[in-house]
Amino acid sequence: MSTAHTTGPAGTHHVLMLGAGYAGMAAATQLAARTRKADVRVTLVNAHERFTERLRLHLTATGQRVAELDIPTLLADTGAHFVRGWVTAVDAQARTVRIDDSRVLRYDTLVYGLGSVTDTAVVPGVEEHAYTLDGPSDATTLADRLARLGGGTVVVVGGGLTGVESAAEIAERHPELDVVLVGRQDPGARMTARARSHLRAALTRLGVQVISGTAVTKVLPDGVELAGARTIAADVVLWTAGTRVSPLAAAAGLTVDERGRVVTDATLRSVSHPDVYAIGDAAAIRQGYGVLHGTCQSGMPTGVPGPTSRPGRGVGRRLVRGHRHRHLPGRRAARHARRPGRDQRWSGPGVQRCGPRGRHHLPRHRRRWPRHRHPQRGQPRQAPSGRRRHHPPSPDGLSR
């Protein structure tokens, strides 16, 4: 029988973070850096030591080499501690987390960021016959299978960004294969008309056949069945349609939505348990347009900055005064979160490479800079006398 263990000396406030995805890594490094002088110990728990770059898995799936990033190395000199293990249970009443069914870690504040995986239970046959991209091992398995095919058809199910990127990459790296992209909506349906036109032209150039406006009702050993009993023969089926989260939050008694995500208030605190925060895909963060979609661009701002401790005032307040996720400004927030700063120790995956344009996700002509600090106009000019000089917001959101 295992016993409960704290994660540091007595009198220390223990912040336990579950999940080292984009949001979890950002939150752990930011929080550890800002609580160095406080009696706070930050512990990050993840099942693997290797950081999984979800938005690079389609590259691995086509046999391309990507950087292998080690989580303990990324956390070095940040002050955060790493524990490797599978989270098997959360007891929100006792404030404990069970690891590998053999260890129990206590916490004072829990940051729940276990993320999501591909939903393979929604359609019959997906679990048995389709490939997914949930981790490096899945991507490597698919790459080996594609390399052995001398020809044939690959069906990619899902018209989202993962599906589009995977279909395009497979078609480009394996021109001997016929690639079919199947989705309920047109590829890039949420993009602008100009972006959709560009996307469609790129897929056409690569020879990707697009079938939209229909759903896959069953995955067969040798193909997929569409609504209306139409069948598409396939040698390989890659499933990228939809995700699901871990049932641990619901089992722990936290208030969750219909998809099992932790329901939070505007400060990312659980509405049912004030000592629990939720970030990334595991959180149901409501915005003016609906619930925040789980991506790298939206996940990282939920972890940068994360909950912190302020001496005498407890743990759980946001680093930024007034920084409430009620109106998260989308791409601009993601761009600022990715910009390395003075206290942002982690400059690895996602921070500088979260999108095709690298550090900045917007076209150059749409980046806003104060006139006297425009990077393309030589040295910064002095601000007009009598006016307070304006600085661009720092990545951590704090005023300078």
Rank of each mutant, 00 (worst) to 15 (best):
R184H: 08
E176L: 09
Q185G: 09
V262P: 02
R388E: 15
T240M: 05
M17A: 11
S246C: 05
R54F: 08
D178Q: 13
G312K: 09
R335K: 12
V219S: 02
G150E: 11
T52F: 01
G228Y: 04
A167H: 03
V256S: 03
R50W: 09
G316I: 00
H372W: 11
A334Q: 01
G160N: 01
T240Y: 03
V179D: 00
G8C: 10
R368S: 13
V104W: 09
G341F: 00
G397E: 05
L177W: 06
P349L: 10
E49K: 13
L319N: 04
H365L: 11
R368T: 13
A229P: 07
V83Y: 01
L206N: 08
L254G: 01
R269Y: 01
L254A: 06
V320E: 01
G125H: 05
L69F: 14
Q30L: 06
W239T: 03
D257R: 07
R34L: 05
R313H: 12
L362P: 04
A229D: 14
T140Y: 07
R103F: 07
A23S: 15
T52R: 11
A266G: 12
L181Y: 06
P311G: 09
L57P: 02
G79E: 01
K218N: 14
A23C: 08
S197N: 10
T118A: 15
V126D: 03
D144P: 02
A284Y: 01
L133I: 08
D91W: 00
A143C: 12
A282W: 03
T29V: 10
R34K: 11
S102C: 07
V111C: 03
P187H: 09
T204N: 15
L146V: 06
G85A: 10
R84N: 04
P136S: 11
Y289A: 14
V40H: 05
L105F: 08
